[in-house]
C-alpha cells in the first residue's frame, strides 16, 4: 500500500503545504490592495486631523482621501520632510510625520505645526500597540486635544508631558494615568521629531 512507503509522508506534507500555501497566497493577493489602501488612508486621516480645520468625524473613506489630495501638499525641499497646507499660496501649517519605539511596539504619529513654527495645531496617532485602556488612550481625542495651541518651548524640551494633576505651562500636557512608560516614550518621540525638524528648518533659513 502506498501509505506504507517511506517516502509517502514527505510527498504528502509537500503536497498539502503547496495546496494551503497557494490558497493563502491567492487570498492575500486578493485583499492586498485593500490592506495597503487601509494603511495609506489611516495616515492621510492622521494628517488631516493634525492640521487645523480639515478633519470631520463622519467623512467617508473616499471623501477623506479626496480632501487629503486636494488640500495637502507632499513634502518639498522647503518643508523639512513635513506635509504642507497652503491656502491662497500662503503656507498655513505643516504636518510632520514622527515615529519611534513605544512601550510595546512602534508608535507612528503626525504632528501639526503652524506656519510660525511655534504653535502646535494638533497631533494624531495612527499606529500604536500600547496596552488597551492605558497606553492606548494616547490615540484618543481626550488626550490628543490637549496639544492644540500648545507652544513649542525654545529653552529645554519642546513639549513636556507632565504627570496627571500637575500645573501646566504653555508647552505642557498631562500624561495618561497609569501609563508612565508610554507617556515618556511618546514625549521622546515628539521632542526628537520636533527638534530634528526645527533644526532642518533653521538651516534652510540660514541658507537663504
Amino acid at each position: 500500500m502506498i501509505r506504507k512507503k517511506s517516502w509517502f509522508p514527505i510527498v504528502y506534507m509537500f503536497c498539502l503545504t503547496a495546496f494551503f500555501s497557494t490558497l493563502v497566497i491567492g487570498f492575500t493577493q486578493a485583499t492586498g490592495e485593500r490592506v495597503a489602501a487601509n494603511e495609506k488612508l489611516a495616515f492621510e486621516k492622521a494628517v488631516l486631523a493634525a492640521l487645523p480645520g480639515l478633519y470631520e468625524e463622519n467623512l467617508s473613506r473616499l471623501e477623506l482621501h479626496k480632501r487629503f489630495t486636494e488640500s495637502v501638499e507632499e513634502p518639498d525641499e522647503f518643508s523639512g520632510g513635513a506635509y504642507v497646507l497652503r491656502q491662497n499660496g500662503q503656507t498655513v501649517a505643516y504636518a510632520l510625520p514622527i515615529s519611534g519605539q513605544g512601550f510595546w511596539a512602534p508608535i507612528k504619529a503626525v504632528i501639526g505645526i503652524k506656519a510660525d513654527k511655534k504653535t502646535i495645531t494638533g497631533i494624531a496617532i495612527y499606529q500604536q500597540n500600547e496596552t488597551p485602556g492605558l497606553g492606548a488612550e494616547i490615540a484618543r481625542t481626550a488626550f490628543t486635544e490637549q496639544f492644540r495651541d500648545k507652544v513649542i518651548a525654545i529653552n529645554g524640551e519642546p513639549i513636556n508631558i507632565k504627570r496627571p494633576g500637575a500645573v501646566l505651562g504653555d508647552s505642557d500636557v498631562h500624561a495618561v494615568t497609569g501609563a508612565t512608560q508610554t507617556s515618556t516614550r511618546l514625549e521622546n518621540i515628539i521632542n526628537m521629531g520636533l527638534k530634528e525638524w526645527l533644526s532642518k528648518m533653521s538651516e534652510r533659513e540660514n541658507l537663504k
Partner: peptide
C-alpha cells in the same frame, strides 16, 4: 492567516 488577512482588510 485567513482570519488575520480578513481583519486587516475589512
Amino acid at each position: 492567516i485567513i482570519v488575520d488577512v480578513v481583519l486587516k482588510a475589512y
